[in-house]
Amino acid sequence: MVRAGLTPERLTRAGAELADEVGFDQVTVSALARRFDVKVASLYSHLKNSQDLKTRIALFALEELADRVAAALAGRAGKDALAAFADAYRDYAREHPGRYAAARLRLDPETAAASAGVRHAQMTRAILRGYDLTEPDQTHAVRMLGSVFHGYVSLEMAGGFSHTAIDSQESWAWILDSLDALLRNRTTP
């Protein structure tokens, strides 16, 4: 008999919370069953396996992050939009480290195409329209911004900037200023 109240959505949300607590790599169907004090087998009527659970958490995190970024971008353009996007991304990673890790999960092409990952790319391209970039520079810029944001956030979360007297927020602002200047002054050779 399926325990009342357990649904794929509730399990996904609980899995996302668990990821933030113990790390995304530690999330399993067994760990989730312990959280609900049920037998593992009772979750298999809602989930296929641990990979299905991880994929659901990844999709949840991508959607949650896309909603947050969209709200931050509303009514903004240029450098203001760039900073709002970057700050929303960084804040989400700091507040939800397990979900952030989940959002980095490699999805199969069909799942990825139907995910909020597409919204992330569209929002990044919308920001870049304010910089008047054409292809292929726009694609290069999307990749650059994703790499810089993810790289900085990953290093910061791993404690990579804790050994210096310069505040990481100061470096973050410097990076955003530099990215804005680069995008504004980019000329195609």
Rank of each mutant, 00 (worst) to 15 (best):
A83Y: 02
F36A: 01
S168T: 15
R99K: 15
R99C: 08
D137A: 14
T124V: 02
P136E: 06
S171D: 03
L59C: 03
V148P: 00
D167S: 13
M123G: 08
P8N: 07
A101Y: 01
L47I: 03
V2D: 05
L62Q: 14
Y92F: 15
E63H: 13
G160P: 14
T12Y: 02
R35G: 03
A121W: 05
A61T: 12
H120M: 10
V2E: 09
L176E: 08
R68D: 11
F24L: 08
G146N: 11
R119T: 13
A114T: 05
A14C: 04
V69H: 00
V27D: 01
T111W: 06
G160V: 12
A84K: 02
V148D: 02
R10M: 00
L105I: 04
A70Q: 15
A83D: 04
S50P: 07
K54P: 06
A77L: 07
S42E: 08
A61C: 14
D20P: 08
S45I: 06
A141Q: 02
A71Y: 04
R68M: 10
E64K: 13
A126P: 00
Y100P: 03
K39Q: 14
R99W: 02
E21N: 03
V40E: 12
E95G: 14
W174Q: 13
L59H: 00
Y131A: 03
T164Y: 13
D25E: 15
L73Y: 02
E135D: 13
Y44K: 12
V40T: 12
G117L: 05
A66E: 10
E9C: 00
R129N: 09
L65T: 12
H120R: 06
G159P: 01
P109S: 09
L11S: 01
Y100I: 02
V27A: 06
D177V: 07
V153N: 04
T124K: 08
T188S: 15
